[in-house]
Computed example of a mutant assay.
Amino acid sequence: MSAVNTLIYPVADLAAAKQVFTTLLGTEPHTDESYYVGYSVDGQEIALDPNGHRKGLTGATPYWSVDDLEATVAALTAAGATVSQQPTAVGGGRTVAVLLDADGNMIGVMQG
């Protein structure tokens, strides 16, 4: 597995969250859409997802980049994780899934 390179925050009020994160990060977002606001800070993607709560995200979720999403999900579930969000294409050739460890901590994985 690669390093965590994306951290996604579920937000209810995208405009308010964008103001806070633009101030916190000291930069404007590189992507500013109604469905996703993304910032790049030293190679780290910090994103705001207004649909995150609906998808089951309960807080900031780290996403690990993997070469084979299906194999990674299978290995993690065999190790005891449970799938919270099934693999989903999110655009740009990227697919994501979210799993929960035994304590309910969210583990995001992405390919593409």
Rank of each mutant, 00 (worst) to 15 (best):
A102W: 09
A74K: 15
H30T: 11
G56C: 12
A102D: 13
T31F: 02
D13T: 07
K18C: 07
G93M: 00
Q86G: 11
A15N: 07
A17Y: 08
T95W: 11
D101A: 12
D13A: 11
F21E: 06
D13E: 14
V37H: 01
Y35W: 13
G56T: 13
L69Y: 07
L25V: 08
T88I: 12
D49F: 12
Q85A: 10
A74S: 15
V90G: 02
V96R: 00
T72R: 13
K18M: 06
A12T: 14
I46W: 00
A16R: 10
Y39Q: 10
V73D: 04
L100R: 14
Q44L: 09
L69G: 09
A78C: 03
Q111T: 07
E70R: 09
P62S: 13
A102Y: 09
Q44E: 05
A12M: 12
M110L: 15
Q86F: 11
S65M: 10
T23E: 13
D13K: 02
T61Q: 00
G38Q: 10
G43D: 00
G91K: 04
G59V: 01
L76A: 15
G26A: 10
Q86C: 11
L24W: 04
Q85E: 13
A47L: 03
D32E: 09
T72K: 14
A71Q: 11
R94M: 12
P62M: 09
L76V: 07
A47K: 04
A79D: 06
L48V: 12
W64V: 15
Y35N: 03
G80W: 01
A47C: 00
V109A: 02
V109M: 01
L57F: 08
Y35K: 03
V4N: 04
G52W: 05
I46P: 04
K18H: 07
Q19N: 14
A16N: 10
G43M: 03
S34G: 07
N5P: 05
V83E: 04
G108R: 01
G52D: 00
A3Q: 14
K55Y: 11
Y39E: 10
R94W: 06
H30A: 08
A78W: 03
G52K: 01
W64L: 15
E33F: 01
G26R: 12
A3I: 12
T6F: 07
V66Y: 06
A16Y: 07
L14R: 06
D101I: 13
M106S: 03
K55F: 11
L76F: 15
I107M: 07
W64I: 15
G91P: 01
V4D: 03
Q86D: 14
D67Y: 04
Q19H: 13
G38N: 08
L48D: 09
S84M: 13
I8S: 06
Q85F: 13
D49M: 10
G59L: 05
T61M: 02
L57P: 06
D103Q: 15
L100N: 11
G26C: 08
Y63Q: 03
M1F: 00
A3Y: 14
A79K: 11
V11P: 14
D32S: 07
D49A: 14
S84T: 08
P50F: 00
A12P: 05
E70L: 02
A71S: 12
V66L: 07
T22M: 05
M1P: 02
A79N: 03
A97E: 01
Q44S: 00
G59T: 05
Q111N: 05
A97D: 03
V37Y: 00
G104H: 06
V4Y: 00
V66E: 02
S40N: 14
D101Y: 10
V96K: 05
